[in-house]
Amino acid sequence: MSKRIHIVVGHYGSGKTEFAINYALKLKETHEKVMIADLDIVNPYFRTNDVRQMLEAKGISVLASPYAGSNVDIPALPADILRLFDDKSSAVVLDVGGDEDGAVVLGRFRQQLEEEGYEMLFVVNAFRPLTKDADSILEFLREVEAASRLKTTGLVNSSNLQGLTTAEDIIKGQRAVEETAAKSGIPVAYIAGIPEALQGLEAQYGEKLFPIARFLDLGYEF
């Protein structure tokens, strides 16, 4: 968390947006100013903008396209996006769209990002068919890097089956993520999961554990 700019990428369904929201909340514990930007231009449903009120109530600024959550499908960025780079006193979390098309957005800011430095976290859910093992994770990661023209600095094991996730599931996902780390040289930064699933893993994984509170629910049982 030493850099000012934290980029969260990964496949949709990895838990990327939940992780980004939780990460912004974590940053708020140590930073006076935190911004989160919803840069998702590919997924029209379930996005950071859906929890804008909650984040703003906690003092986190939310940058999102005015079309997010509306009935229009326009791959637009927020008009005030350059605030991310102008206000150097604020920590920043970028929630990026869930595939290589979504990551294209980052290429636009490559110069600013490289000049200032960044942390780019690639969130992995090994229970998603297209990122189920080290080879498929790396294939996806390389596509996102090529589209964004940026480099991943850390892996996040966010392996989950939503509310059904158990500690065994997280350990199973961790094997795939550790193999990805070994093959790529990119370190494992966090192991994220709902608190129930992280229980009993402290001894094994220590401070890498990152408990997640779920915010993007529907308001009723499904």
Partner: peptide, 13 residues
């Protein structure tokens, strides 16, 4: 084996 998928992806697979 359990996996986590979107409705659209489930349909395609």
């Amino acid at each position: 084996e359990k996996v986590l998928v979107k409705g659209n992806e489930a349909l395609a697979e």
